[in-house]
Structure formats: structure tokens, C-alpha cells
Amino acid sequence: MPAVRRRGTVRLRLTAVHTGLFVATSAILVLTVNLLLQTMLHQRVAGMKIAEAAPPTFAGPPSGSPMTGAVMGDVADLPDAVLRYQWTVSGVTIAALTLVSIAAGWWLSGRLLRPLHRITATARRLSVSTLHERIALAGPRDELTELADTFDTMLGRLQSAVDSQRRFVANASHELRTPLAIQRAAIQIGLDDPTPQRLDEIRRELLLANHRAERLIEGLLVLAQSEHGLETSEPVALDAVVRQAVGETPGEGIAVTLATEPVQVAGDPVLLHRLVANLVHNAVRHNRSGGTVEVRLASTGDLTVRNTGPEVPADRVDELFEPFRRLRAARTGPSDGAGLGLSIVAAIARAHDAAVTARPNPGGGLELTVRFRARQATSGAESRPVMI
């Protein structure tokens, strides 16, 4: 009921504005015409009286005859009679047209507000389960169809966000359920025969499962913090962060080549360290035996990490930046990682107003580039190979 009352108020306002403009313009028109007519009639009658006082140029009734006086009296009263009739007709006409204007304004405002009613009705019906609905307003391209198209676009983005959140929750639940199931099985089955050797195996299984759950929870926290945005920002020497992250990344005989130029960016040093560490760790882990990793930081703020490794299908590169996505499994699969590495990289990059791009390398591997907005360069440069 309140919504109907608001729609009626807008319709009444439009009708009142339409009728008010009509009455105002009509009154101005009638007043102007009648005043001009009054002036003209009085001037004509005055001219006729002047002509009567002039010497006659033709034979006619004596000027003082009763007939001449009666005619001149009627002529003198003619302007007032015509004006009274004119005002009466104008008033009746304006009153009748005002009623017509009210009806036309009410009908016209209803037609103008009909698309808005449709938009309101669609918005009122929407819920999480009906985000697929669209207004799809037809008609000429005007402000109302543009509003409806904008609303449809917003619904599409909202539906994508809700679907992504659902997938994220389902995948997170799956990932958290796996280590918990391992721990429960180890406790229930392994402790049936608690020999010292069996207890040592159970201990290792429980520690591995606990470590996996801990990494997953830590990754989820970092991802949530990155999606929330930066609370504080400070100048960060990105070249120093890159060197530190590369030096701390463990490897298995993978040759890592590091080339950096002095760069300063605005951001959070902890999150930037996590971004670089995830890129380098991902490049080392998804590599082949004896492979290489190239890390380059240009003075323009472009950070590039390139590695050798398995073939990466070009049509699946974008999936790698989604949470819990792995190259060898569409959703989740057996792996020592949780599938959050590159999604954390993308979230941290967005929080720092940076762009992330990826492309497969010919022959295998991946090249990832993060383009930061460099503030200024510090003195000195460094280019050196590092073996890890």
C-alpha cells in the first residue's frame, strides 16, 4: 500500500504540473487578448464620437434627433457588452479545457510512469533465487529504456557475484572437509590398534592434515583482506620486496633468474610480499624438473614472472585466477595446494589498483604480468641470477 501511495503522488504531481501550466498559459493568453480588445473597442468608439461632432458632409437626419442619440448610446455601450461576453466565454472555455487538461494529464502521466512501475515490480520480485529475471524494456531509446538497461546490467553483475560466492562457499567447504575427514579417519581407525609405530604414522597424518587446513584458512583470510581493500597505504620499495620474496621461496633445483630495477609503489608491504611470493611459489611448484623461472621488475612498475612447465590451454588461463581452480581439475582435486594462489594475487592486485595478465608460453609454462602504478624510482639497479 505505501508503494501505491507513492506512485499516486508522483502521478498527481505530474498531472498538477501539466494542468497548472495549461491554466497559467491560458489565463495569460485570455487576459492579453481581452485587454487588447478592450483598448481597441474604446478607441474605435471614441473615434466615432469625434466623427459625430464634426460638420456633416452629407444630408442625413439632424444631429440632435432622437434616432441619432439612441444609436450613439448603443455604440457607447457596445465595448462593455462585447467584453462581458468575451470574459464569460473565455471563463467557460478555460474551465472546460482545465477539466480536459486534468484528464489528459492523468492519462499521460500514467503512460509515462508505466515503465517505472514495471521496473519497481521487477525489483520487488527479485530475490537470490530470481536474479535471472530481467526487465527487458522495449520501446524507443529514451531515459526510461536506458534506466531499465542499466538496471538489467546491474542484475547481471549481481547474479555473477552471487554465483561466484556460492561456488566459493561450496569449494571452501569441500577443501575444509577433506583435512577434517582425514583427521577423523586417522583417529577412528588408527587408534584401534595404538602401537608405537601406528601412533607415529597417525601423528604424521594429523600434522599434515592440520597443516593443510591451516594453509587454507590463512589463504582465505588473506583473500578476504585483499577483497576488502587497503585500509592504509604507504610508499613501498617494490624491488626490495621482490628480492626478499624470491630469496625466501624454497625450490627443488629450479633455476630462478631475478632482474629488478628500482620501483616505488603505494600499498601494503605485507600484501605485496604475499603477491610476489605466491607468483614465484606458483612458478616453482608448477614447473618441470630442471626448469627455469624468470622474475623481472621494470622501472615502469611491470612485474613479470615466467616459468617453464606443462602446457597451459589458452582457453583455461582465466580460470586460474578463480578460487579453488586448478589446471588438472575443473573444481578441486588431489593437490598439496588449495587453489588460492593466483586468486590471492588477483585480489591483492585489484586492491593496489594494478592489472594482472597471463598468457601461455610456447612449449609450456605461463607468463604472468602485474602492472603497478609506479610512483618514483630509487637510486641504483640490480640484475643478478639466483639459484634456489
Score class of each variant (00 low, 15 high):
Met1Arg: 10
Ala3Ile: 04
Arg5Gly: 13
Gly8Leu: 12
Val10Leu: 12
Val10Phe: 06
Val10Glu: 06
Leu12Tyr: 05
Ala24Asp: 08
Leu29Met: 07
Asn34Arg: 10
Met40Leu: 11
Gln43Arg: 14
Val45Gly: 06
Ala46Arg: 12
Ala46Asn: 14
Ala46Cys: 01
Lys49Pro: 00
Ala54Lys: 02
Pro56Trp: 04
Thr57Gln: 14
Phe58Asp: 13
Gly60Tyr: 10
Pro66Arg: 05
Met67Asp: 08
Thr68Ile: 14
Thr68Met: 12
Val75Lys: 00
Asp77Arg: 14
Asp80Tyr: 00
Thr88Glu: 07
Val89Tyr: 05
Gly91Phe: 08
Thr93Ser: 11
Ile94Glu: 09
Val100Ser: 06
Ile102Pro: 02
Ile102Met: 07
Leu108Glu: 09
Leu113Met: 15
Arg114Phe: 00
His117Met: 10
Ala121Gly: 13
Ala121His: 12
Thr122Lys: 11
Ala123Pro: 01
Glu133Phe: 06
Thr145Arg: 14
Leu158Lys: 01
Gln165Ser: 10
Ala170Gly: 03
Ala170Arg: 15
Ala172Trp: 02
Glu175Ser: 08
Pro179Cys: 04
Leu180His: 04
Arg184Ser: 15
Ile189Gln: 14
Thr195Glu: 13
Arg198Gly: 15
Arg198His: 13
Leu199Val: 13
Asp200Glu: 13
Glu201Asn: 11
Glu205Gly: 08
Leu206Tyr: 08
Ala209Cys: 07
Leu223His: 11
Thr232Cys: 01
Val236Ile: 07
Arg243Pro: 00
Glu248Leu: 11
Gly251Ala: 15
Ala255Ile: 00
Thr257Ser: 15
Val263Cys: 06
Val263Thr: 10
Val265His: 02
Ala277Met: 00
Asn282Arg: 00
Asn282Gln: 03
Val284Asn: 02
His286Asp: 05
Asn287Leu: 00
Arg296Asp: 13
Leu297Asn: 11
Leu303Asn: 02
Asn307Val: 05
Thr308Leu: 12
Pro323Ala: 02
Phe324Gly: 08
Arg326Asp: 07
Pro334Asp: 11
Ala377Lys: 06
Ser379Asn: 11
Gly380Leu: 10
Arg384Thr: 14
Arg384Tyr: 09
